[in-house]
Amino acid sequence: MLIKRIIPCFDVLDGRVVKHVGFLHDRRDAGDPVELAKIYSDAGADELVLLDISASEQGRLATRRVVEEVAAQTNIPLTVGGGVSSVDDVRSLLLAGADKVSMNTSAVRNPSLVKEAAHRFGEQCVVVAIDANLNQTMGEYEVMIQGGKVGTGMDVIEWARRVEKLGAGEILLTSFHQDGTRDGYDIQLTRSVATAVNVPVIASGGAGRKEHFYTVLTEGRADAALAASVFHFAETSIRDVKAHVRQRGVPVRWIYQ
């Protein structure tokens, strides 16, 4: 049986892991990405996601050096995102040791990039990250770009279906309005995307307690749940989350004695 994945995420800024409350403000230092990667990998993380959060706005690619060092420290899959704007960028990060490359703003601006990357390197390494925000005027979830600063007017479900057709092998879905709140994942959003597409969906944004993971993996139909600050600041651990969801009948990879 394929299990549900628990994925810690590193938001990297200038070589350090940071966690911020909301997309835009109040960044707190959470440590060295290479050290954290090793710790989480040993603690039972099923995968790691590393996002260089300033790369896109600074018009550069995620730091290769950090990717290389993190990849060397771990024996679990690594997804990297941040400033990916060409097929060469995808290649560069794959060669640095990423197993999957995540695109967000650049996929919206140039959807053929998703198609080209999937064709060249295989669907399995192409992740499209979608930042969703509930737009009161539209009454729908809107795709946001540039770290949540810019609305696109595009409907999240339609965009998710489109990137699947273009060859995305996975969708990393963040609810912008929940991110950093620790009030729980947006279950309705996650469920509507996870049932609309036939590729795995990673839910992100809002994890605060271990119960939140259970809900998004069951009611939310997510294939994986991603979280950052709850792990970085030791409010819960990967083992605690796995023990909790496992006890309630969700299959997880259990590596502990």
């Binding site: 049986m1 394929l2 299990i3 399995q124 092998g169 795995p200 294939d223 990879r253």
Partner: peptide, 10 residues
């Protein structure tokens, strides 16, 4: 089933 078959399987 979801395709790709992606993740940890026993």
């Amino acid at each position: 089933v979801k395709v790709p078959h992606m993740g940890w399987n026993d």
